[in-house]
């Protein structure tokens, strides 16, 4: 199973390095989101407190939705997802491989986004880098774990581009709330570790629940 996950991740990375399609579209879209919000919400070099973390998570979720749709569109074009369903590896390995690829891509996007948001919104996001990395990674993982399952389920649906955000955003609202609240707490001048720990624990709980559900349901939902 681990070998199959590794092969799928390596394949996805190789394809992306050759085409750079997902990285470019995801990163530029996320940057565009942040810039639009910055033009609107930053007045005389300052934004209202808490705006920066909100914009960061909005950009992550919008860009994540785009990346999820495109990564499965790529598997649909030559029906390679069917080929992956045919191999003797456990089918959850396909899910984990695709999930890892999405998480890597979104993490790279966030490496660009975090300093940009901190700069444009004058947010003290990098004052506690360990906590910020843990919160952003946990939130990204939770969002991607649900999104990967839905994107795979919808790959043959005609209206998949519409259905994916309609299904994905309501279910990942807890990730958005916990991610924003934890990031706001991290950016506060009077940092309170207990508040961050609480929201981080919520994100981890969400990750565990939805990863378990996704691994459990992936095989039945992918068998027609």
């Amino acid at each position: 199973m681990i070998r199959a996950v590794w092969l799928i991740v390596r394949k996805d990375v190789t394809v992306e390095v050759r085409s750079r399609e997902l990285a470019y579209t995801t990163v530029f879209f996320a940057i565009s989101c942040v810039l639009v919000f910055a033009f609107s919400l930053v007045q005389e070099g300052r934004a209202a407190p808490g705006v920066g973390p909100g914009v960061l998570w909005m950009a992550i979720m919008f860009a994540g939705n785009l990346a999820l749709g495109r990564t499965f569109e790529r598997e649909r074009q030559s029906e390679t997802l069917r080929a992956l369903m045919l191999v003797p590896a456990p089918r959850p390995a396909v899910y984990l491989g695709k999930l890892a690829g999405i998480v890597v891509l979104l993490t790279l996007t966030e490496i660009v986004l975090v300093p940009l948001v901190a700069l444009l919104f004058q947010a003290e996001l990098l004052s506690h880098p360990f906590w910020l990395a843990a919160v952003v990674l946990a939130g990204t993982f939770g969002f991607a774990s649900v999104g990967t399952l839905f994107a795979a389920m919808l790959v043959r649906a005609r209206s998949r581009d519409v259905l994916l955000p309609v299904l994905l955003y309501p279910i990942t609202v807890p990730v958005l709330i916990a991610g924003v609240r934890a990031t706001v707490a991290i950016a506060q001048p009077d940092f309170d570790a207990d508040i961050v720990r609480f929201w981080f624990a919520l994100l981890v709980a969400f990750d565990v629940v939805f990863l378990t559900l996704a691994l459990w349901t992936f095989e039945p939902v992918m068998t027609d």
């Binding site: 092969l7 190789t14 394809v15 029906e79 590896a89």
Partner: peptide, 26 residues
């Protein structure tokens, strides 16, 4: 299975495609 669609990744080389699936088949 050889499908009507070819189940190949166009960005990968022929060798990479074949080695990838050989790996997945253990």
């Amino acid at each position: 299975v050889l499908g009507h669609d070819l189940f190949l990744y166009p960005e990968l080389t022929a060798r990479e495609n074949l080695a990838f699936f050989a790996g997945l088949y253990g």
